[in-house]
Design a protein around this nucleic acid. Structure first.
Lengths: 353, 353
DNA sequence: ACCACTGGTTTGAACGATCAAACCGAGGCC
DNA sequence: GGCCTCGGTTTGATCGTTCAAACCAGTGGT
């Protein structure tokens, strides 16, 4: 009690810049500087201020900061309804990794839902104008994606998990396709799976994928075909099945293939959902069929099935990196390397029985 | 252009209360009233103001509002890592419904991650002091849950998806257990499943659950036992298996049961993950085993398996309701009915082959 | 005439942070 | 001495909203 200055009531409200300031005997701005630009404040003052911060347990109010700086340190994400299939856990795990990464960079993730792309754009607008969200993460990119154009059109930072797939109709101007994205090299994954099967004695692994039209599906099919090309497997020995993303559909297609002459001894699948069906069909036919799935879902681990694992944590890390970089440069041109194609990893498991 | 009043620059910044006010020729507070308390403003003024709001596309800044009102209209949720099993999609679907409901009530959902309960509490603290989150949604309640005590201790609104399970050690003071929760009546679900199997000619459906100790598991087991009690099935005919949440573990346990004398013709499972294993074992044994799962995951639908569906949308609706009610009464006592036990629904499917 | 009251509106202040400019003592230089 | 620079600090203004009080004309009671 050297000065007659008694610290003001601290019981009801949270510690604020001013309360810390008067506790340390400095002005509010000095406290701010001590935290955000420690170099600008004298060493002994700094020490005193930090002690007061610690003492009072001061934490800055994000609302106040946001009001002044017009930054929210918040990223928006549409939470989509991954209806059928078991591969939903991919986006689920991606989300987890994303929140983790954002947290490390002192950012928050807010979710919203929408029924379609138009609703999603409405959601962007809403969050931008009311909550001043700094940027968005987009998933499930597809051909003719109107969302990226809308965002790019008004200079909103965003990054997609999934590369932009070529639009058949509009021949994609060079500027449009130049946004930031992170994706996993599906072809590399199926190529590795196929090479593994070839190396373990299977003459001509079949491919079980989706009907044409999906960029992701085409990508994964390509890896299989390339591996067979490299191994010199003639076209007439190649078996290729295309079914919708459904275990039942996969099972019946594979059952038919097993009954036909020249039945495959192994099959590379575009998803664990399909792979699950393939294994079911094989079990019912008591056929020895080696199955490799895609996405390495918990189900694959549970039933001891080989599968291609996507580096989701790494992808999330990069997405957040790209996004934060854009926000910080303030729309002054995207960073140099703005597109990342990550290599997946084949997880080999010995299928029991 | 009747008055010489030219509207100020609107190009760079967003519309604000003041800009709308001067466009409508009133004061900022009148605009605020027009939107938040339309009864307090004269009809013709109201019309003029609303027109200006529409015209300029005004949307209130949440940061500014939050700064003044100390409400963020935001709910926090720890996103947990539902490692193994396929039943993660339950929390996934719950999350989707939750965001949907929150959106309807003009609330946002922010996520965070934590490694354990202690970290989760730290996350609460962080969000409370910096982001002024209004309340929290808790999932995966368990015995001896320290999180609820912490939150209740400082009067933070929260609601749990999952009832509070009795703590063996501490005999749960009456005040502690009195928080808001929503849960699904697991016993009712397994009871319905068992009754269905009994009605379709199965003498004594077995139960495949988890090792003792889990409140949820015990709950689901009870429904099965009650149904057998009601049907007068003697104890010696009852088969009960307990394995960890893993398809493989379930498969081997069921395989053993099928080989033993008095093998069951049907089995009620505590999760789809377990059910998946049971079906796999039955298929390998070429045994006719009727399996009912729990959670009605997409996998169950995909392979045509009966399962008990939880009313997740309804649960999410109630959770948001309870939470918003608490926030609005400002901690002045929780609402009257603060606990809800919802009835699940049995989805019967004809398993193909 | 005076006062109380009412519906509708405006004005002032505050929330808590940051940016920008002002300030101030200590040197250094001419 | 006068003037400029410089590190360190303070003061003023601002972001956009809401609360609280003030204001103001009109009405009715006494």
């Amino acid at each position: 009690m050297d000065t007659g200055d008694v610290p003001s009531e601290v019981l009801p409200g949270r510690a604020t810049l001013v309360s810390v300031a008067e506790a340390a005997g400095v002005s509010r701005q000095t406290v701010s500087n001590a935290l955000r630009a420690p170099g600008k404040v004298a060493p002994d003052t700094l020490e005193r201020v930090l002690a007061a911060v610690e003492e009072l347990g001061y934490r800055p109010s994000l609302a106040a900061r946001q009001l002044r700086t017009r930054r929210s340190r918040t990223l928006g994400l549409r939470l989509e309804h991954w209806g059928g299939g078991i591969s939903g856990s991919v986006l689920d795990r991606f989300l987890h990794a994303l929140v983790d990464e954002a947290q490390d960079r002192e950012h928050r993730v807010v979710l919203f839902t929408a029924d379609d792309d138009a609703g999603e754009v409405a959601g962007y607008d809403e969050l931008l104008t009311t909550a001043q969200v700094d940027g968005f993460v987009l998933t499930s990119t597809h051909a003719g994606d109107g969302r990226t154009a809308w965002l790019a059109g008004r200079g909103v930072p965003f990054a997609t998990f999934g590369r932009p797939w070529p639009d058949d109709d509009a021949p994609a101007g060079p500027a449009e396709a130049a946004h930031c994205w992170v994706d996993v090299d599906g072809a590399a994954g199926t190529r590795a799976a196929t090479e593994h099967l070839l190396a373990t004695g299977h003459r001509a692994p079949a491919f079980l994928g989706w009907p044409a039209g999906s960029g992701t599906g085409e990508d994964r099919r390509r890896g299989w075909a390339e591996a067979l090309d490299a191994a010199g497997v003639p076209a007439r020995e190649r078996r290729e099945l295309a079914v919708p993303e459904s275990t039942a559909a996969a099972a019946s297609a594979v059952a038919a293939a097993l009954e036909a002459p020249g039945a495959p001894s192994a099959v590379v699948c575009a998803s664990d959902t399909l792979a699950l069906g393939a294994r079911g069909a094989a079990a019912r036919h008591r056929a020895a069929l080696e199955v490799v799935g895609f996405d390495d879902t918990p189900v694959a681990a549970a039933i001891g099935m080989s599968s291609v694992a996507q580096p989701l944590a790494e992808a999330a890390h990069l997405v957040v990196d790209l996004l934060v970089a854009q926000v910080e440069t303030g729309g002054a041109g995207p960073p140099q390397t703005c597109q990342h194609l990550l290599a997946p990893r084949l997880v080999v498991r010995s299928s029991p029985a």
